[in-house]
Design a protein around this nucleic acid. Structure first.
Lengths: 190, 190
DNA sequence: TATATACTTGAGTGATCGCTCAAGAAATAC
DNA sequence: GTATTTCTTGAGCGATCACTCAAGTATATA
């Protein structure tokens, strides 16, 4: 009996993710979303419930894709090689809407207001950090890095460096490739 | 003949800087500013012209203070020591409204919309980077670091690390002191 | 004290915010 | 075909946005 939606829900979430990623939470209005997703307000709310709900879905999608991509890369070329390659990947991927991390942008924007989306972003960043720690641990077990390092600590520093790198990559007066190379080079010192 | 304002303009700019720093550009409303600065709309606009104009003054103040503090520190304890101490300073300064850099937050929030405040923030970050580069150059001339390093490149990496550190320091699941120590330790390898 | 010159006040501007909902259109089941 | 169910549409809700301005108030000089 029912009628099917005229849109591809998954594609719309990915599209919304890119818009939010670019312009942030407050910087993206319902008008923006309606125009880009080609949805009237009624359809929008029937499909996603609210702006915040869609934003949460976008964060989810963003994190899932990120973890999946890095995990796949590590299985391809090994944990340490993946960690060394990641800095260059995240800044030269010209397909990404912006260079800075969406989780970091969300967290920075909404943390002070104690917004639930900031908490969600924080949890997702912890997820990513765990992913890094796992790779460092694997690299250690494979004797690719010294045995005296704490994988959790390496992961925290590495993630911090990546956040800085990706923000720096947005700047026109910074040579991000050099920074990425230097971050990768640091991993050889371990 | 005239009547003097009842407020301390400089103090109000510093107060506005802290509010903007915390909540960002879109996250701070005129109502917020009026309430915190205890100014009615008329006085506000007579004093500062617009929200954006005040934000620009806040950015200016933020940068001036940052450069002055680091420069003074370097004259006290030397360029390399200042660079090594800075990471710990910026994250344990419990007087600061938030840990993340206001220039970085502004840039990240407004860059995609090509807002003039994003450009101003970018210029101020370049200013800070030059400040770092000068210290690295001085450290090199003082034989505190090796002669084969490019001070500009070191400065870019160092600033990137600081941006990451300061954002990480906002997170409850990250030990920022460890990251700060690791950044400082890296400078000994030069 | 008289007057000129600011500063302070707060109601109110049009625009936009996220969001609602009733009515019309379309597709399924029978 | 008809009935039923969902999707689509868009006018419009109250709230808030950055901001204006005329009237009132206080302080300087003369």
């Amino acid at each position: 009996m029912p009628r099917k939606p005229a849109y591809d829900r998954d594609a719309l979430i990915a599209q919304a993710r890119d818009i939010f990623w670019r312009h942030g939470w407050a910087g993206t209005s319902l008008k923006d979303l309606e125009r880009e997703l080609k949805l009237k307000p009624g359809s929008f709310y029937a499909a996603f419930g609210s702006k915040d709900a869609l934003y949460a879905m976008a964060l989810e999608r963003y994190t899932q894709d990120g973890v999946a991509r890095l995990t796949a890369l590590a299985e391809d070329i090994g944990p340490l090689a993946a960690l060394k390659t990641q800095p260059q990947i995240v800044i030269d991927s010209s397909q990404t809407p912006v260079q800075a991390c969406m989780l970091a942008k969300t967290f920075a924007e909404l943390q002070a207001r104690d917004h639930q989306l900031a908490q969600k972003a924080s949890r997702h960043m912890a997820e990513m950090k765990q992913c890094f720690a796992t790779l460092f641990r694997q690299a250690q077990q494979a004797r690719e890095i010294g045995p005296d390092h704490d994988p959790e600590r390496l992961a925290a520093r590495y993630q911090s460096d990546l956040l800085g790198l990706r923000l720096s990559a947005e700047r026109s007066d910074v040579n991000a490739k050099e920074i990425a190379a230097d971050i990768a080079a640091d991993l050889d010192q371990l």
